[in-house]
């Protein structure tokens, strides 16, 4: 395509990369920024990772927001997940107004409060990890991330015991609509928590061993964001089930 020479386009656009000195109606040689004429590619060692060994870097040769692709992907995923939990919440609210609804006394289950505290502590640990990774290097984040991992496991175990308490009280999945929703919502949330644990395990493995600097900090930040999201979701849904 580089054989086609540039010409003035009467109303077809404006060139920010155009060569200087072009005049209306003149034919201008192709500037050296097209495929063959560009400088040799970099080696991808710009801290942003390579691209299939082609060394384009991440942002230098591209349009886009100054945000890592992983963060955009995560935010989109959180948006999608928030529809899942909103759909659950709105189905819950609609179902409440229909027949056969008997509330379950969640107020009498201190374990759920303990679990909520544990989930909150997980988020705090991940904030600490993120701050440490920025100031003290990636390895400094390892301990708080491991701590968060342990807390996350404790949360899941706690939720499991909460299910056990309900079953001891005779409340099974199909006993009442409220119990159905409790199991359903905690299962959906728990599955997402499990995904978060996998992510944390991956971060622990990666911290200090990654070849591209800065990626560990980003990984801690993104997993942290995900866990904060799950905390907010839990507070919202637990609050909803508590007051109704």
């Amino acid at each position: 395509m580089t054989t086609i020479e540039a010409v003035t386009e009467p109303r077809g656009g404006e060139a920010t990369e155009a060569p200087p000195g072009g005049r209306l109606g003149t034919v201008t040689p192709v500037p050296p920024d097209t495929l063959e004429g560009r400088p040799p590619p970099g080696n991808g060692a710009n801290g942003k990772g390579g691209n299939g060994g082609f060394g384009d870097g991440d942002f230098g040769g591209r349009e886009g927001l100054p945000v890592p692709a992983g963060k955009i992907g995560l935010l989109l995923a959180l948006g999608s997940m928030s529809i899942i939990f909103s759909a659950l919440a709105s189905a819950y609210i609609v179902r409440m107004g229909l027949g056969g609804w008997v509330s379950i006394p969640l107020m009498d289950m201190p374990l759920l409060w303990v679990n909520t505290g544990i989930l909150g502590a997980t988020s705090v640990a991940l904030v600490v990890a993120w701050k440490r990774s920025k100031s003290g290097g990636e390895l400094a984040a390892r301990a708080p991330v491991l701590f968060a991992l342990a807390l996350g496991v404790a949360f899941l175990v706690g939720q499991w015991f909460a299910w056990g308490e309900l079953q001891q009280a005779g409340l099974y999945v199909a006993t009442t609509p409220a119990s159905s929703f409790f199991y359903l919502i905690t299962a959906f949330h728990g599955l997402h928590i499990f995904g978060g644990l996998v992510a944390l395990g991956w971060v622990v493995r990666r911290l200090g061993t990654s070849t591209s600097p800065g990626s560990g900090v980003l990984a801690v930040e993104l997993t942290g964001l995900y866990w904060h999201f799950l905390l907010v979701v839990w507070l919202g849904l637990f609050g909803l089930m508590l007051v109704t």
Binding site: T8, E9, R11, E14, A15, T16, E17, L24, T28, V30
Partner: peptide, 18 residues
């Protein structure tokens, strides 16, 4: 004209859009 062929400046809003 393919998208990869440069233009020469002839006015416009200067933000690279037609």
């Amino acid at each position: 004209i393919p998208q990869t062929v440069p233009l020469v400046p002839v006015g416009g809003d200067g933000n690279g859009r037609r």
